[in-house]
Design a binder for these strands. Sequence first.
DNA 1: CCCATATTTGTGCACGCGCACAGCAGGTCA
DNA 2: TGACCTGCTGTGCGCGTGCACAAATATGGG
Lengths: 337, 337
Amino acid sequence: MKISQQAVADLAGVSRGTVDRVINNKPNVKPETRERVLAAVEKLGYSPNSNGRALALCKKQFTVTAVCPGPEVPFFSDVLAGIEAAKNELGDFNFYVDYIFTYGKTSESVIAEIDNASTQAVMIAAEDTPIIQKTVKKVTSRKIPVITFNSDISKCGRLCFVGQNLYKSGRIAASLMQNLLRGEKAKVIIVAGSQRFQAHKARIDGFIDALGEYAANIRIADVLETNDEYEKTYHALSDSLSGHSDIKGIYLASGHINGALEAILESGKKYAAVANDLSPAIEKALKDDIFDFTIYQNPFEQGYKPVMLLFDYLLKGIKPSQTIYYTDNTIITKEMI
Amino acid sequence: MKISQQAVADLAGVSRGTVDRVINNKPNVKPETRERVLAAVEKLGYSPNSNGRALALCKKQFTVTAVCPGPEVPFFSDVLAGIEAAKNELGDFNFYVDYIFTYGKTSESVIAEIDNASTQAVMIAAEDTPIIQKTVKKVTSRKIPVITFNSDISKCGRLCFVGQNLYKSGRIAASLMQNLLRGEKAKVIIVAGSQRFQAHKARIDGFIDALGEYAANIRIADVLETNDEYEKTYHALSDSLSGHSDIKGIYLASGHINGALEAILESGKKYAAVANDLSPAIEKALKDDIFDFTIYQNPFEQGYKPVMLLFDYLLKGIKPSQTIYYTDNTIITKEMI
DNA sequence: CCCATATTTGTGCACGCGCACAGCAGGTCA
DNA sequence: TGACCTGCTGTGCGCGTGCACAAATATGGG
């Protein structure tokens, strides 16, 4: 039933070794022989048996280097759980994951670590800055496959990106806001976080676009740039809420709730409120009915998927079928914690 | 790094064959030898290499028989996609899935098919009736592992169950209803479907419990038994809506929207409406703003997971770590289709 | 005590693959 | 012509495992 290299070899009239050379793109095969083998591969629909491959490569270690903030950041601790799960699942394949944690480090030292890493593949979650772009480009030019995750890096030759569809997450927030404010004329404040991050911009675009399409009753009263800092967020929202007496809803486009929470509590009113991600603080706010929904970007999957894609690439030679893998946007209510 | 049978054998002072016999629980091993080997296994932390195992078992086919309604039922067509994905992923392990489709067949003929099936494992989604219980019990007594999925079967010796947490799905529906009806005094109708199915009962319990806990403003005006038939559902809901003039919300506890949809449209009013599952009809109702939310019980996962669990059980000897695996309840809005 | 029979243990092959090495032509140059 | 290289192809080993079979050891009856 299953096609082996031997079957291909028999059909092509060569030895198994030659088939192996063709499959693995090794040099020193006469072009016409190579073609004959490829024809046989095609005809029989051969694909390598990953078990055999894994067994033969038993002594060789495959190492993937994961570059991301680190377990101190709540969101990324869940991402790391996904990476560890994937690593665990692939233990039989001598497939390992090394980490370079970036939290609290300078770009320079991170870049140095990446340069020095001896690794077969890289997955990286970092801000899309010119220095990072350049560094990643250097890695890919060494034929080392790179997958970006959580936030994408542009023009760097990466294999693919795994992360949230930010624009869509904004649109979903809009549909939730619409449902919370069922037809009543209402004003809404957007708490935008730092514009430095692409994330917030794209979410806000989605939010505004969707509202424009189907929720004419909802007006944006204010878009607050807060930089995700406690004091700044608190004051911005507090001022805005007391400035407009008739605010009905709040959309928190970042995953940082601190400051916003206090401003809302102090106002003493109940708003239609939608947040992002699922930190302990947001969990509590959901339970306390201060926020109604949060939109969750499956961090586990964001860790798990890139490892699996790199595994397929390294061990099976299968390139990712897409250049962008969007992880599910999940709506969370207090009942789902 | 990796521990092999040989390493265990060396430590225990026996041959690899003996280790193999102990690992795989074969007879004819002297009890004290068995213990010595087990001690060595423990000490070294040995676990079988699934690649080696798969390779050695290359000629042996593992067959799982999946018993479920069939692709005609929209929900199960997605379940089948999950099964196929798992099957595909395990192709290198000579791991196959046979189907017994139950849609439109009598219990007797299904039971006969199950009895005649020559298979290594069974996954079954069927109503929890005495005849089915008995049949499954017969299968498990032949040492053939059984996993129930989608809907559980009681007292049948199954390994575990994979499916939705129905009670919780009801509670989530309640939290959505609460958000839709933000504090206003409101009456709600529950469309219950057939009580024959455990599903609806558990969902309604969850819905009512959660409302009782935190949504005193919402009152249940009616619970309609509809049997999921078009005419019956249509008339029941239509009558109830005209009977109570002040209904604000509708909770559809089954996945069958037909009849209900027409009754709502005819009333000419907009209700806070929550449904279950994701048939084409419900998708359309979401897009048209007739329903606001639907609660989705990941059918893909319900197909995928049992196959993987049976794979681990058959090929690696790993028993499922839980007796119940709940699949995610996902909230869907029109933006998520 | 010996031989027949159970019981227990060891051995060797196969699975599909990657890789190192050996063989085998044909060509080049002194 | 012989020594040497180069481009190509075949061969054989080992990865960890399951299984059939051979070998060794224990058991028991005469």
